[in-house]
Structures are given as structure tokens and as C-alpha cells.
Design a binder for these strands. Sequence first.
DNA 1: TAGATTGTTAATCGATTAACAATC
DNA 2: TAGATTGTTAATCGATTAACAATC
Lengths: 225, 225
Amino acid sequence: MYNSNGVRRLGNKRKVPLTVIKRLPRYYRYLSELFKNDIGRISSKELSQRMGVTASQIRQDLNFFGGFGQQGYGYNVEYLYNEIGAILGLNKTRKMIIVGAGNLGQALANYKNFRKRGFELAGIFDVREDLIDKEVNGLKIQDFKSLEGFIKENPVDIGILSVPHDQTPSVAEKLVSCGIKALWNFSPMDLKLRQGIVIENVHLSDSLMTLAYKLNRLESDDINC
Amino acid sequence: MYNSNGVRRLGNKRKVPLTVIKRLPRYYRYLSELFKNDIGRISSKELSQRMGVTASQIRQDLNFFGGFGQQGYGYNVEYLYNEIGAILGLNKTRKMIIVGAGNLGQALANYKNFRKRGFELAGIFDVREDLIDKEVNGLKIQDFKSLEGFIKENPVDIGILSVPHDQTPSVAEKLVSCGIKALWNFSPMDLKLRQGIVIENVHLSDSLMTLAYKLNRLESDDINC
DNA sequence: TAGATTGTTAATCGATTAACAATC
DNA sequence: TAGATTGTTAATCGATTAACAATC
């Protein structure tokens, strides 16, 4: 089903652009803060000022998913917070495993916020003998060899890849062959995604390089201007 | 100085959009791979196929910074690699400190790739008594109280914030008051940036929520289509 | 030279902002 | 009711893609 611009529609709705989706977690964070501070309602204008975006953009973004506000009133904070959570799928629990129990893997395993949002760590795996059986946040690191068996016994939604660079493709392949459909990739390498697999790449070094660029420009502006 | 579209120009050049800048590290990674594999030259077409973007976009992006190619030949891999590195500022060493030596802070401290790109870790700080004096990647974790004195003795370019959520604003303020102009922020909170300070936020939970959204949509597409 | 491929301008596409009728 | 603020359409802006003359 296509609209007049040739854009695919899902059911009755336009396909939501990725730019919009990436803003949802940010709205969610701000609404969470408002809710914590017992603020019951908010207008797009007020929220736009807090967030440093336009009110138009907020209303446009939300209306991809439905009309959550009320003319003359604005938005009910708790309601909108829950709705965005539901859109993001935070109302259903997602089981995760970590592959690669080095520093980063262990740091992620200890991250408390995930569980709060409905993400549950089910297992941690590594190939390194000295790490196997070590306990991290209440879970014993398991031998990577037992991964396949584990996934057969325990359904897993999300695979977290915190393995060294050169092992990323093969580990990703393994996870996908075990039926995992979502990969959260921390290696500085883009994973080729096949149909039916979703991926989020977290390229820390890209972010640091971007920061270096900004700093450079800042310094040269100081000199020139 | 402004061009016909009213866009500010820097010297003779248009201001480079952030979207373009964020793509530079990715070009840099791909060129690094090509260089490692002894590939001496590449055309925008060939590179576009490897990266899954259009050749037009590559040529447009590069031409914000200058003409690095040659008609009929393409781009010299080593030259372009070095040029992009220079644009990103990777040819000058940047001193960094980490504030917050929890799991994430320690993971970052152990990250080997940073040094390779010219980022040098100069210090790690925390308030926790049990962490102070612990050695991480050859550096002793220092008392947060000694931060100010340390920065006076040792010039620092980049401050890495891996402290708990609620301490982020005050620590950021402290770093800025000590003269640090670039912050790499890992807390799930946007830092308000004042004039003359540059920030990169790494919101891990935002990325995970985006992944959850994609997974949801994937599953509902499976059912509907 | 002929073929290849850039740098750059023009055309298209998509995303953001503005405006306002609808309505709480 | 009058004022406020949404949902939505229209206008603008910016980013991407296409096209091609320049030239190696």
C-alpha cells in the first residue's frame, strides 16, 4: 500500500522515518523526568523549549503514531510516557545475551538501567578460559561453545556483540544461525544485515573522532574569529 | 561571509553540515581496511558499493573539504585516508581523562584503539575510596579531589564522563571550569552546552531502545506480510 | 587518443518549520 | 465563552541523487 508520494504505508500509516524513531528515546527520557517531578501535563511548546527543538517537530513526530494530545490542554505526561514506551516496545520483556565478556561486556552486564526498561540479561559468553565461570552481576560467564545449546533451551531476543574486531562477523553469523534477530554491535565494524535481521551499531571510536573534529573546528574558530 | 543561500561560509568554504561530519569516521574506517589490504586506489563508485551509499554522496561529502581525487583515476587510498584523518584532527595527540572509574570507565580505559588514533589517556578519577589507587591499564585511579590540581599540571583536551546519572551535570561543570573544552558524555542525559564547549553524547540506552523498536516492527511485519 | 571518473551544477526528494482551522 | 493548543496541511529548507562538462 502506497500513498500519493509513493511512500510505503504500514496499515493506514506512513512508514515512520528512521530520524523520527531515533528521537523517540529522547522524548521518552524527557517525559520520564517530567513524570518523576510530578508534572502532570505539558504542551508541545513547553517541551520544545526544554528539549531545544521546535514544537512543530514534536507534534509532527508524535502524529506518526497517533494523536496523543488534546487541544487547549497539551499532553498528559504519564499517558504520553507510557504510549511512547509502548511504541518502543518497552512493555514486553526482551531477553539478551552478551558475547564477549571483556571489560566492555562486563560493564554492560552491570548496567542497571536495562532491566528497568524491560531488558533482561540471560547469559554471558566468552572463549577465554580465564573468564569462564567468573561471576558478573549474578551470572556466570559461560563457554562460548555452549552458546548454541543455551539458546535452544532459553529463547533469546537480542545478542550483544562485545567481541574483538576480527571475530565480529563470525560471532554475528553464529547468533543469527541460532535464530537471534536483533544484534547490538559494539565493534568498530559495520555488520552487513540480511533481510529479517535488525542491527544497532555503537561505534564508540566514530563518536570520539567526531568529537575531535568539533574540537578542532572550535579551536580554529577561536583563532580566526 | 555568506553564500547565495544565506549559509555561512568559513573562509572560502561552506559550513560543513553535521550529517557530513558524522560520515567521515566511517569513510576513514573503510579506507583503513582498503589500505591494510594493499588496495592503492579506489573510485567513488567502487567505494559506494562497498559502503552501501551512493557515489554521488561520497563525492559531494569529500568536496566540502577539497578535491582529493583525479579524473579517470579515482582516489589514492593512502592519500585520502591521511587527508580524512587530518580533517578529523587525528594527526595531533589529544590528552583525555576519565571521570568515573566504574565498569564503563575501566572498560574505556582499557580500550586499545584510542591511542592508535592519537588519543592518549592521561588520568582516571573517581570519588570511591575502594577504587582510588587501583591500577587500570597502567594508570592509578586518582581521587576526584585532586582533579583540579592535576589539570593545572597536565593539559587535558577531552573529559570523558562515565559517572552516575545524577552526578553528570556537576562533574561536567567542574571539568569546564577547569578549562576542558570537549566532553564525551556517557550518561543518559543531555548536557546543556554553553558557547565554546563541544560535546558528544553516547546514549547507550537510546540505542538499545531503537533496537527494540526495530525488532518490534520486524516481528509485526512478519505477521502482517 | 578513448575510456574512466572526478568535481560541480541542477533536479529531486525528504525533513523541518510555519500556519491555521478545529476543538477542547 | 475566550484562550490555548492540538492535529494537519502548506511552505520552506536542506540533503541526496542525477547528470554532465572537464580532464586525467
